[in-house]
């Protein structure tokens, strides 16, 4: 791969040099240097303009607009300051949403990280070609559009046709109300999220495992280090950065997840599985209380911002390590 890329680079360079050689005589030197630098930065800004327009118009502006919207009353006729936020915080239904969002995100990320870590190690132990096949199979949940696979889970949990319950009954276990009872429904949405996200962790950790130099393990083996010592003193320190980046990233994405809860339970039973995104959808879009919906979404912001800052720090540190 790397060699091919270099070869392509050289070929491309040759092509450009050949095609542009006649002009080289005409390019002005001397006083043109300053103009050149100026042109360089103006070209640079020009190339970034579409990106700036996109981020400014459809990310930054909506974010500020969300803050403004969240401070209006239901019919958007009157400024109410922090009224919506205070109203939400005092409402038991919303307190339950905060709690459930935390339960959902934290437990799903913990299980995704553990399963992903385990799977990465299992895959790493398997030789080349069959590793490719297993990896290909195990990444499938991540590849299928989440809304579609969640429909499949919904059908698996269907109260009267549940194929899971059929299996349980075969083993003499009574049926469970997969989506009907509060804690079972909470368990189900977390299960689906773990199913969807664990392969992502697996792939990230596998890439990290492969980047750990083999000599370290050989040296450790000579020193008589056991499996636990190798994990504790080589693998984990070498992977620390990727581990934390992946976990934080997943925490952000899981916190903001919409598809699973929306399709699987639509927040039920009795709003017990609502998380921020689905609750904001019900309040803002379905019930038409735009300011309240905006306020609910904005409750995610501090958590997301905190996570984002740490992810960025991890990434910068990692690229500094790789460069140095």
């Amino acid at each position: 791969m790397e060699e091919r890329r270099v070869a392509e680079t050289l070929r491309a360079a040759g092509a450009v040099a050949a095609s542009s050689a006649p002009w080289s005589r005409m390019s002005p030197r001397g006083g043109g240097l300053r103009r050149f630098a100026r042109r360089r930065s103006s070209v640079a800004v020009l190339l970034c303009l579409p990106l700036l327009a996109l981020i400014g118009g459809l990310v930054l502006y909506p974010a500020l607009y969300a803050v403004w919207l969240a401070m209006l009353n239901k019919h958007m006729t009157r400024f109410v300051g922090l009224g919506n936020f205070l109203f939400l915080l005092h409402r038991p239904a919303f307190q339950a949403v905060i709690l459930q969002s935390v339960i959902f995100a934290v437990s799903a990320v913990v299980f995704k990280a553990l399963i992903g870590f385990l799977l990465a190690h299992l895959l790493h132990a398997v030789p080349g070609r069959s590793q490719r096949v297993w990896r290909g199979l195990l990444l499938l949940p991540w590849v299928i559009p989440l809304a579609m696979s969640t429909l499949g889970w919904w059908w698996l949990f269907d109260p009267s046709y549940s194929a899971f319950n059929w299996v349980l009954n075969v083993f003499g276990v009574p049926s469970v109300p997969g989506l009907g009872a509060t804690w079972w429904a909470r368990f189900s949405v977390i299960l689906v999220n773990v199913w969807y996200g664990a392969p992502f962790f697996m792939i990230m950790y596998l890439a990290a495992l492969k980047s750990v130099p083999e000599q370290l393990y050989e040296a450790a083996a000579i020193d008589g280090a056991g499996a636990w010592a190798r994990l504790r003193y080589i693998t984990l320190p070498m992977m620390r950065n990727i581990l934390s980046i992946t976990i934080l990233f997943s925490l952000i994405v899981t916190f903001a997840n919409f598809d699973i809860v929306r399709i699987l339970t639509a927040g039920g039973p009795q709003d017990q599985t609502h998380i921020f995104a689905t609750y904001a959808f019900v309040a803002g879009i379905q019930s038409g209380d735009i300011p309240l919906g905006a306020a609910i979404s904005l409750f995610m912001l501090p958590i997301l911002a905190l996570g984002a800052v740490f992810v960025l720090r991890g990434i910068t540190r990692r690229s500094a390590e790789q460069a140095g």
Partner: peptide
Amino acid sequence: SGVLAAGVFLTYLVPDSLLFIPLFQI
């Protein structure tokens, strides 16, 4: 440019469910 590069990455971490209400209005 350095700030913009970092900003691009932070924008990547902005989920769809954060801004869908103001975007609905827009």
